[in-house]
Design a protein around this nucleic acid. Structure first.
Length: 607
RNA sequence: GGGGAAGUAGCGCAAUUGGUUAGCGUACCAGCCUGUCGAGCUGGUGGUUGCGGGUUCGAGUCCCGUCUUCCUCGCCA
């Protein structure tokens, strides 16, 4: 149906007779001369017809509508001098139309197919196939293909097998909520859609596959975010007879191959590493954006000498007083500083006490607790900040504050303080325009094995097959939970958690210990994971793995604002698909076959 | 489950304190035009102001509810 695509004609093709197919991107009718831009995935070519030279072509280009699909026969010719379009690869030539066949007519579109048109996202998702005709999605689907290809090539070259694991599998109630699928063959029983291929990849290791990977779809029935979809894609990997060093090295090589394919530049290896504990202490998060230079300072020992009742109360209750010094932040406006405080409040903190630091002394809400009492002699401060009390000087010294800086402090219960400090660090970094420069990839290592639940119990921070750090094993056996470290690790890029992995447990007794530690009885553990525990009886290699969230990686790598922009057919925040209307009610007879009863659904899209 | 923002022609936006027949741009349709390429000019079509209720002589505007979308906390082993 075509001799060439719309994007490939060049000066060398001048004189050729061509057959082209594509969409009508634009029409420009000048009476006796008529232009049509014909578009396909490969580009845009200008068609032309002239009343005198090509009456048949003139007739054919008549009455076309935007996005009609047409087929055109014509001759490539050089554009007149001064009429070249330098912005298009095909801009040196045009096709003199001899005949046009309208293949498929298009009705009026819900939005124009043009990159410069701002279309609401709901509309873009409802008509995703039209959004796809625009270059941003065209480009991202191309890059996604190239990146996936680079991953596959790199892993196959490393000796990995690509193994497809089941989509219909067994529910494991730990962790995220499962998507469930009713069984017709065995009424009352359910499959679950996989949250990850975790157990199957471990079983593949028991099966001697040695190196496994899969570009795997994972489903989790949890509330969504800008960087979370109900189904998402992971590059899932597992290796036998390896430890974390082997995994780091492998993932680094593979990531570097993708950077080379997409950015044209390999990564500087090895990547930086930081323990979970250090990351939380310095950056108030387990996924720090290292492009942001701001760091958190613990002010517990200085904050209690200021006579600030809030600080004293919080510290007395076991809370945190921590602060962030913003170099040069004294230049921020009151409105900007308020927005930092708002960020802290939005993160759940009561507020943020701040002051600006200057040679003549501190100013702002926190300053009165730092200043010397009237009539007393200010401390002679080595960095020339006037008017300070002894406690105030020590406080600012701990922060290493200098004249011209802004100091923001958070005093709250540890958990809330942590999220608030993270928010303050991000907001202040943005306002100061600190967050720039090259991508910062790093490993976060030695995650805690357990996390405290709201009920006061413990559950695995990663998953129950993660191996503890051997040093901590005696403490674990003695009943300790909170301080036990695991051999789990995350890969973080510019403050985004790209993926995580761990060295797995390959010892049945240790596995049973962990199950017991998280309150999973032997019966329940046996019932849910009997197949894994059984497999471990038949000779299991030590193994470890990793999974990279490809949607998140690609959003960053391709410069997209959300992961929806790198996914062909994404869902909305309510996990619905505006295009197909999923989820939907099903026929009564389908329900009957499955032994289910229908419930009246909540209204959707009735507006 | 909690908090926040938004919703007015296909699309982007406006509409003074609650006050005329809800406007502008763009797209679309028609006509004109020999070189455009986000063409230009002239004219035209296009509205249950998300939906429901309330207050009022009068509601796009105020109040209540609801739906949708986005952001966010919880949640996401």
């Amino acid at each position: 149906m075509r001799s060439h695509t719309c994007g490939e004609l060049r000066a060398k093709d001048i004189g050729s007779e061509v057959l082209l197919s594509g969409w009508v991107a634009n029409r420009r009718d000048h009476g006796p001369v008529r232009f049509v831009d014909l578009r396909d995935r490969y580009g845009i070519i200008q068609l032309i017809a002239e009343q005198d030279a090509s009456p048949a072509g003139m007739e054919g280009l008549n009455g076309l509508h935007p996005e009609d699909v047409i087929q055109v026969r014509g001759t490539v010719r050089r554009r007149a001098a001064g009429q070249h379009n330098a912005e298009r690869p095909t801009g040196e030539v045009e096709v003199m139309v001899a005949a046009v066949e309208k293949i498929s007519a298009a009705v009026r579109l819900p939005f124009e197919i043009a990159d410069y048109i701002d279309v609401p996202e709901e509309m873009r998702l409802r008509f995703r196939y039209l959004d796809m005709r625009r270059s941003p999605l065209q480009e991202r689907m191309k890059l996604r293909t190239q990146a996936n290809h680079a991953f596959r090539c790199a892993l196959v070259a490393e000796g990995f097998y690509e193994i497809e694991t089941p989509m219909l599998t067994r529910s494991t109630p730990e962790g995220a909520r499962d998507y469930l699928v009713p069984s017709r063959m065995r009424l009352g029983s359910w499959y679950a859609l996989p949250q990850s291929p975790q157990l199957f990849k471990q079983l593949s290791m028991v099966g001697g596959m040695d190196k496994y990977f899969q570009i795997a779809r994972c489903m989790r029935d949890e509330d969504l975010r800008a960087d979370r979809q109900p189904e998402f894609t992971q590059l899932d990997m597992e290796m036998s007879f390896v430890d974390e060093e082997d995994v780091f090295a492998l993932v680094e090589r593979v990531m570097s191959a993708v950077y080379l394919a997409i950015n044209g530049q390999a990564l500087a290896l090895p990547l930086q590493r930081m323990s979970f504990t250090e990351s939380v202490r310095r950056f108030a998060t387990d996924k720090p954006d290292l492009r942001n230079p701001l760091e958190v300072v613990d002010l517990a020992s200085e904050g209690c000498h200021l006579g600030f009742s809030l600080f004293n109360d919080v510290l007395h209750k076991g809370g945190w007083v921590r602060g962030i010094r913003v170099p040069g932040g004294g230049s921020l406006s009151r409105k900007q500083i308020d927005s930092i405080e708002t960020a802290a409040k939005d993160a759940g903190a009561g507020g943020a006490a701040w002051c600006k630091v200057a040679e003549e002394g501190p100013s702002g809400p926190l300053s009165r607790f730092l200043k010397v009492a009237e009539g007393e002699t200010p401390i002679d401060c080595p960095v020339k900040i006037g008017g300070l009390s002894r406690g105030g000087a020590d406080f600012l010294k701990a922060l290493e504050a200098l004249p011209g800086d802004l100091v923001v402090t958070i005093a709250d219960a540890p958990r809330r303080a942590l999220t608030a400090l993270d928010a303050v660090r991000n907001k202040a970094g943005q306002l100061m325009d600190f967050i720039q420069g090259p991508d910062r990839l790093l490993w976060i290592t030695e995650f805690p094995l357990f996390e405290e639940t709201e009920a006061g119990g413990y559950h695995p921070a990663h998953h129950p097959f993660t191996c503890p750090v051997m040093e901590d094993l005696p403490a674990l056996l003695a009943g300790e939970k909170a301080s036990i470290r695991s051999r789990a690790y995350d890969l973080v890029l510019n403050g985004v958690e790209l993926g995580s992995g761990s060295v797995r447990i390959h010892d049945r007794d240790l596995q049973k210990t962990i199950f017991a530690a998280i309150g999973l009885s032997e019966e329940v553990a046996n019932e849910r994971f009997s197949f894994l525990l059984e497999a471990f009886r038949y000779g299991v290699p030590p193994h470890a793995g990793f999974a990279i969230g490809l949607d998140r990686l690609y959003a960053l790598l391709f410069g997209a604002d959300t992961i929806r922009d790198v996914i062909a057919f994404p869902k909305t925040a309510t996990a619905s698909c505006p295009l197909t209307g999923a989820p939907s009610v099903v026929d009564d007879h389908q329900m009957e076959e499955l032994g289910l009863s229908q419930r009246t659904p909540a209204p959707l899209n009735e507006a």
